[in-house]
Every structure is written in structure tokens, then in C-alpha cells.
Design a protein around this nucleic acid. Structure first.
Lengths: 353, 353
DNA sequence: GCCGTTCCAGAAAACGCTTTCCCATAGGCT
DNA sequence: AGCCTATGGGAAAGCGTTTTCTGGAACGGC
């Protein structure tokens, strides 16, 4: 009756307008078949009472909440921030709200978190780079309206960036600049998108047997990159492609601290094109992953699903190479001219093995 | 009955366990006074049926959703990302979910957005730097369990960073380095935290009449900073304190493009200490605003409120000066020694008026 | 041995809405 | 004039829980 809670309910409006609750409901939802005068009376009563239908009650009877969940592993990561933003904005445009969950704290409890969250929503977009494939497949089945980002699950719509071809573009870019000995500062082996990158590494190895690509385990954070820099240096590689921009920035920072010139001595490229990649020193060459679009697309798939459309196959967005200042021609051992040449090499690093 | 929707409901469990729904409810909620054997039977039935109580129905009857809303003006801004993360993590620890809303698209509709969002939740954390004060006060009244971030609303708990003293710290830092002519690259005049900064400017003017501080209108983004850089240069100031780190980075970029050395010719400092402030070139001196803590504190106030505690006064966090490489001693017009001195000045900019 | 307690469990009433079902009224048709 | 069909609005049955209220059974005290 609304009086219990202090909120004005549909019955209050009905009473004020001298009609039944059914009629109020019909008017509020724009259902046809209500006398114009009556409808007007209801609207007046509703607005003068400041009536707002309780969304919870609506959700319960309607069976939909007008809300979706977005589950990401780490809200501190620019990539996931971008995705979250993409789906939030797109969903808002269609009148949907977003419930956000960060699973970082407890990767083991991830499945429980996403299930619990899912119950309050109409669907979920799941971004879980690390969940084991079999666990993921099992978990996702119970989530039904769901789209996964950067994962492949049979029968489930997914939107991904093509990390595999992206990393090949990066490698080719360096190869074209003359680099013949590169290192890949890898992400976590349990990361699905890292696996895609490694597949790209293999593709590249076949295509360009003349270029050597070593792999060093790094991680996904700035710190991981900084830590990996020393082994990059020791490897004697002239170029490093990092798991992502964060790692690349770590490498950059560590290299700078060691007085190693980028790109004169070592080229370093990242992956993702996070908002700050353009502002590192030197500005980071990277493969741009359109995270916002990824998020928006995820929403679109969900919206289509809500509209009853049949799901099509997965969509894959191709990263775009962004050449900036952190990559350059391979250093030459020939005596440097102190001129204007961009890639004029210093011999400083010559003795490194 | 649950059968209609395909979901297993409480009645299904009741039937399976041969008890009434009331008993199932009691067991599921750990209410005392249920025979142990019976309780066990219910638990077995529930888990074998994979029963999960519908949170919507619970919310409706309980009158609480176990969800709070976080409303921010722009999910692309690192500051708000940090706050969102802070409250999300803290709330999750206490079993609460977060509904996120980005109001950027339509500042006029902000009030409607927050009201609508609020209805689905138990409370809201509102971060609305630009809403006019009177509108805010009126709007916030209808939101009751609410905490505002970086705004002062009488009678409403708020958590803020002390931008006023923060900017004074920054100014004093530059004054100490010998700067006597500074410019403040201001944010939007409609921004509450910009008003606080300007109040700080006034405080500083009183305390240090020997230091001149000009104000130029800039904005809150990288682009705004870049655009403002030229007028900074023309002003002949030796130091600029930017509205925030983004603006500072814009200034930095534009200065670099013009070949003006930082900090040798001009010092620039930011505000916020966003994650990337440490990685600009040169690394940005700034006043660190603990956004994560701000968010966490906001949650705490809400949690306390839920627990029935009385609200205390507003809390204000003091920004912490982080001196990095973008600020240095004022340039000297005296002939530079080509030595190791950090702030050895170039005369390049001497003619600027 | 009877009555008053206590303990448990089920029936039913909310929570605030939507929607189906049904009835009344008015209008058109033959 | 009588009947049949729109048309509009009200009553009531949900949606899936929680919780109060009620009642039956077992138990203890006198």
C-alpha cells in the first residue's frame, strides 16, 4: 500500500485519481486503450504525488532488470577501464544500467562472483583472461545471455581483438626496420590473450625464419616490465615487443634508468595503445586495441539477443599498428655520425652478449 | 511456482524436501529454530536442485538491494576511475555490488540519471563536480543515503580532497624554488574543485604577496592543457600549476613541441597524481589526491549509515606533494655554466613578454 | 493427570507492480 | 427494438521471497 514504507505507490496514485491500480499501470506504461481524460487525470495525480514506479517490483514481475553486469579482472587496468566504459556508454544509450564487478581479489572465487552478479541482471559481459578454458566453458553455460571478451567459447558470442595478427604486425614492423634478434616480454602463461600472441609468434617464425624471437616471461604490469628489462638487455636483442603497453612502459623506464637509448640502441613496442601510450618518452609504438569498441560491440550483441535476434559468429577486431618514436632502425655497429640521423647508433651496448 | 520460468524456486525446494516454503526460507537464511534433521534435508534438496534464491524477490520484500550506485561524470578520467575502483573494492568486501553511471553524455539529465539509478539501489555515491550548488542541494535531498565526493552539501556526508591546501602546497613549492611569476591553468569555472583551488590561490596571494599568480582558463583535459600552453609562454611566467595532471601533460607536450625546456625554462606541476604522472617526461611534480581512499571512505560512510550509526562531519583528505622532475629552480638570466647543475638556465626564453 | 509452556512448522499476508480475465456500458447492425 | 460486438476499466492472480501469525505437539510442573 505504499503507506508502510513512506514511499508513494501505485495505489496512492490510483486513489488520488479515483481509478484502479491497473489503470495507473496502463497509463504509466503507455498502454493504449485508456480514455484520454482519465489518462490525463492519472498523469496529473502521479506527477503531483511525485510518483515513481518501483523498479524492483517491476523487475520482479517483468522478469527483466534493465541491467547488465560487466565483470573484469582488474579495474586499475586501462584496458578493462576502456571496455567498461565502452559497454556502459553503449548500454546507457539503450536505457540499460551496468553493474560492475572486479574479480581481482579472489581469482578462485571468480565463478561464484560472476554467478551471483548475474542473478541480479539480464545478462553479463565477461572479461576473464585467466580463467582456465574448461572452467570458463562450464561457468558460462549457466550465465546464458552472456558475451565473452577476448575468449573463445563454443556456442557463446564473443568479441575479441585479434592479438595474434596484432603481434605479427608489430614483429614485422621491427623486422622491416632491420631487427633480427627480438625478445617477447610475455604475459602470464595462463592468459588467453597471451596464448594468442604466442600463436602469432609462431606464425611469424614460419614467415620470417631469418628473425630470431626469444621469449622471456614478464607479466602484465609496469613492474613486470621493469623487472624483465635486465634480461632483455642481456639477451642482446635489438628490439622488444612487450605483452602490453604497461609492460613496455616498465621496460622503457628501466632502460632509461640504465642509460640505454630507445630506440637508438633498443626498440621497444607495446600492445593496446592505452591512453597514455602516446605520452611516454619516447612515445610508444604499439598496436591499438579498440577497447571501447570492444565494449560497445559486446553490448550490441546483448541488445540483439534481447531483441530476439539469432547470434552470429564471433567478431574479431584487428589491432592497428601505431608507429611512434620508441621503435626505429636497428642500431648499426658502424661508427656513428653525430648528425641528424634518427637511428644513428651508439656503440655503448656493443659488448652485451 | 518457479515452474513457469524454468528456474527452480523456493517452492520446488520445499516440495522436494517435503516442507513448507517458510522452512526453506528459514534454513537458507540461517534462522534458528529449525530442527537439525529437517534443515539438513532442506539443504540437500536445495543443493541438489541447484537452488539460488532470487535476489530480486528478496530485495523487494527486504527493502534493500545490497547494491549501491556510483555516479561519475566521466569514466575516461583517471581520477574517477580511481574513485570507482576504490568504492567498488571496498563495497565488495562487505558484500555490496556497484551500479555505475557515467553522466557525461548529458549533464542536464544528470539529476534524472542519478534519481533513476538511485531507485535500484540502497544508496549512492555522487561525484558531480559541475552540478550547480543549488541544484545539487535540492537533488541530493531526494537521494537520502548518499555521500558526495568533493562537494560540500550541508547535512550530507561528504568526503573530499583538500584542493585548497593542495594548491597552496604546489605554489609554495614553486615559490621556494625561486619562482615569482606563475600561472594557474584553471579548470572549468563551474567545477567545485576548481573553486577550491582558486580559494587556495587567494590564500597564497595573501601569504606571499611577492609572488604573482596569473590565471588562464584552460579546462580539465589534455587538449585543454595543450591549448593553454601558448598563453602560458606569452605570459612570461616561469612556472605553471595546472588544474590537474591531464592539463599538465598537455602543457608539457605543447612546451616540448615548442622546444621549451622543462623545468629549465618553465616548471610545470599538476594535481591528482594519476597513475601515469610518474612517467611523463619529465616526471610530473604534482599533489597526490588519494582517489582510491576517497572512494573507500565514501563506502565506509555508507556502511556506517547502514549499520545505523550517526553521520559525523565531512572528512577531508590532504593531498600530498610529490616532487618529481618537472619542477626546478627558476631559470636565471645569468650566463649558464655547462656543468652538472640541475636547473642551469638557458637564456632562450629571455625575450618573452 | 491436567494445564500451561515451549518449540517447530505451515498458512497466509505482505513487498509493489503488471497483466490476464471478466464485466459493464455504449454503439452499430439487422 | 433486440442482439452482438467493441471498448474501457476493475478485480484478482501472479512474480519469488520473507515474516508474522497461528496451531499442533511434546514436555514439564503442580
Amino acid at each position: 500500500m505504499g503507506r508502510t514504507t513512506g514511499t508513494t505507490g501505485i495505489d496512492d496514485v490510483a486513489r488520488a485519481a479515483g481509478v484502479s491500480a491497473s489503470t495507473v499501470s496502463r497509463v504509466m506504461n503507455g498502454r493504449a486503450g485508456v480514455d484520454a481524460a482519465l489518462a490525463e487525470r492519472v498523469r496529473t495525480a502521479a506527477s503531483s504525488l511525485g510518483y515513481r514506479p518501483n523498479p524492483l517490483a517491476r523487475s520482479l514481475v517483468l522478469g527483466r532488470t534493465q541491467t547488465i553486469a560487466v565483470v573484469v579482472p582488474d579495474l586499475a587496468n586501462p584496458t578493462f577501464q576502456g571496455m567498461l566504459r565502452g559497454v556502459t556508454l553503449a548500454a546507457a544509450r539503450d536505457g540499460y544500467r551496468v553493474l560492475v564487478a572486479d574479480t581481482s581479489e579472489d581469482a578462485a572465487a571468480e565463478e561464484a562472483i560472476v554467478r551471483e552478479t548475474r542473478q541480479r541482471c539480464d545478462a553479463v559481459v565477461l572479461c576473464s583472461p585467466r580463467m582456465a578454458s574448461d572452467v570458463l566453458i562450464a561457468a558460462v553455460a549457466a550465465l546464458d545471455p552472456v558475451v565473452v571478451i577476448n575468449r573463445e567459447v563454443p556456442g557463446i558470442p564473443g568479441v575479441s581483438a585479434d592479438y595474434r595478427v596484432g603481434i605479427v604486425e608489430l614483429l614485422e614492423h621491427l623486422a622491416t626496420l632491420g631487427h633480427r634478434r627480438l625478445v617477447y616480454a610475455a604475459g602470464s602463461p595462463s592468459s588467453a590473450s597471451d596464448a594468442a600472441r604466442r600463436a602469432g609468434l609462431a606464425d611469424f617464425a614460419l614467415a620470417r625464419p631469418d628473425v630470431e624471437v626469444l621469449t622471456v616471461e614478464a607479466g602484465a604490469t609496469f613492474g613486470d616490465g621493469a623487472a624483465a628489462a635486465s634480461v632483455v638487455v642481456e639477451s642482446g636483442a635489438t628490439g622488444v615487443v612487450a605483452f602490453n603497453d604497461l609492460v613496455a612502459m616498465g621496460v622503457l623506464a628501466s632502460l632509461a634508468a640504465q642509460g640505454i637509448a630507445v630506440p637508438a640502441e633498443v626498440s621497444v613496442v607495446g600492445f593496446d595503445d592505452i591512453p597514455f601510450a602516446a605520452f611516454t618518452t619516447p612515445a610508444l609504438t604499439t598496436a591499438a586495441v579498440p577497447v571501447g569498441e570492444l565494449g560497445e560491440l559486446a553490448w550490441r550483441r546483448l541488445a540483439a539477443r534481447f531483441a530476439g535476434e539469432e547470434p552470429e559468429g564471433d567478431v574479431m577486431l584487428r589491432p592497428e599498428l601505431r608507429v611512434r618514436a620508441s621503435s626505429g632502425p636497428v642500431r648499426t655497429v658502424i661508427s656513428p655520425a653525430a648528425g641528424a640521423g634518427a637511428g644513428a647508433g651508439a656503440e655503448t651496448g656493443a659488448g652485451r652478449s
